[in-house]
Amino acid sequence: MLQAIDLTKRYEDQELALDALNLEIKEGEIFFLLGANGAGKTTTINLFLNFIEPTGGKALINGIDVTKEPLESKKYVSYVSENVMLYGNFTARQNLDFFAKLGGKPNLSKEDYYMQMREVGLQEEAFEKKIKTFSKGMRQKVGLTIAIIKDAPNILLDEPTAGLDPKAAAELMQILVNLKRQGKSIFMCTHDIFRAKNIADRVGIMKEGRLVMVRTREEFLEDDLEKIYMNYMQEMVIEK
């Protein structure tokens, strides 16, 4: 379970990057956060991972305050970053092995890694190839595998579909649905309204640091999500 309570962030003397975010993502729920560039999505993830200090409020992972117990909270969260580079001179399997061990899974075998990589749709011949020869999408899949292997109850994804081909993106959605069925809380930032419509249980729209709208699946299926999103964005343009 992920919780944000009045979570606020201001970088140096700039405007608020995140303005009193209140949000709760339950077990077995997929939450999609939409928003223009610079809206504050990555900032939210950074706050959950305690990569940055909140200016106010708090972020909880499975009830653990991430600023109070940063290390402990990391046990319960996996993270897929925007642009996964990984160690270029390691093979996919070596990268998995390293991060699995950091993630508290020291006893996995080669076969376990292979199985997981197959699951995310990575071609067999890539398993023992150096990551530096990988395309962006292939790296992204390895990054996803790392998150899956950690098997944490909460998963934070920052635009994971960027760079994936449509088939891979669809496969990723399927994986997320499977993870949700296992009871995991999934928080995904994206620009991909289409995917949101497909699998999200709830969708939020963020604008200039404020969560301006949250709709449940039933609600956003009634209205056209794309239209809602555009309306919010338009307002912003007009305001400016």
Partner: peptide
Amino acid sequence: EGTLRLIFSNY
């Protein structure tokens, strides 16, 4: 390479 963030998303 972004691995720093990935490492510190762990214990």
